[in-house]
């Protein structure tokens, strides 16, 4: 599905990611973990097109067989064409807009095409009304799934923290991604919210969307990941199933050796 090969990212003199290669298989939850400063977020930003890697390749293959070289694509195309969606560590909702509007903005490209570049729909012609209805239906579907249906018309910033996280995930899912990238989705959640999040992520996987996540919360990682990649100082030190990684001496050394700067 996603094949990262020899990915290197330098900022000035600092090499944040050094010749990293790993794979994320279709229909699985792949987690990237590692101590602070290991380069997780950098990898993530490269995959989702926010950074342009210094060298190396990131290839995405759709279930239909279409292939995309993500390292060469502009950021917004990665979402619109390659269908890779993402969330942010510090939630980035459209704070002043309503919950429903947040989900409609996410369907921008499809709805925009239905408006005939604005002009047709401006005059009230064309198939835009139907497209808009479908968009609202899709939003309703996701609102029901994340349990926010009765808050659809509230301003997004008025939601409690956990609900904002779920909304951000629902918003990302509204672009119909083949792969959803989550940047520390469990950060700041209480155990109950964290459990609800796990269920949501597993149900998304069950729908056939692959997941790539960065996480600090080992509970979440171990419970829902199919495959874990461990980074330290920009290099891969371990790669395998949760059980394999847990037993890997290199991982233990990296975490314990770094003291408690993880968490």
């Amino acid at each position: 599905m996603l094949a990262v090969s020899n990915l290197t990212m330098r900022f000035g003199g600092l090499t944040a990611v050094d010749k990293l290669s790993f794979e994320a298989r279709a229909g699985e939850v792949t987690a990237v973990i590692g101590p602070n400063g290991a380069g997780k977020t950098t990898v993530f930003n490269c995959v989702t097109g926010f950074y342009r890697p210094s060298s190396g390749g990131i290839a995405l293959t759709h279930p239909g067989g279409a292939r995309f070289a993500l390292e060469k694509m502009p950021g917004h195309r990665i979402a619109s064409r390659a269908k890779v969606a993402r969330t942010f560590q510090n939630i980035r909702l459209f704070a002043g807009m309503t919950v429903l509007e947040n989900l409609l903005v996410a369907q921008h490209n499809r709805l925009m095409a239905a408006t005939g570049f604005g002009v047709v729909a401006l005059l009230g012609l064309g198939s835009y009304r139907a497209a808009e209805r479908a968009g609202v239906e899709k939003a309703r579907h996701w609102l029901e799934r994340i349990g926010l249906i009765d808050r659809a018309n509230d301003v997004a910033s008025a939601l409690p923290y956990g609900a904002q996280r779920r909304l951000e995930i629902a918003r990302a899912m509204c672009i119909d991604p083949v792969m959803l990238c989550l940047d520390e989705p469990a950060a700041g959640l209480n155990p109950r919210e964290s459990e609800a999040l796990n269920q949501l992520l597993l149900s998304i996987r069950a729908d056939g969307c692959s997941l790539l996540l960065i996480e600090h919360d080992m509970g979440v990682v171990m419970r829902i990941s199919d495959h874990i990649v461990v980074l330290d100082h920009g290099r891969k030190i371990s790669d395998g199933t949760p059980e394999q990684v847990r037993a890997d001496p290199a991982v233990i050394a990296a975490y314990l050796g770094e003291g408690d700067d993880d968490e």
Binding site: F11, G12, T41, F50
Partner: peptide, 8 residues
């Protein structure tokens, strides 16, 4: 100047 790196 240094190129600005966007913090995401």
């Amino acid at each position: 100047g240094r190129a600005e790196v966007e913090k995401v």
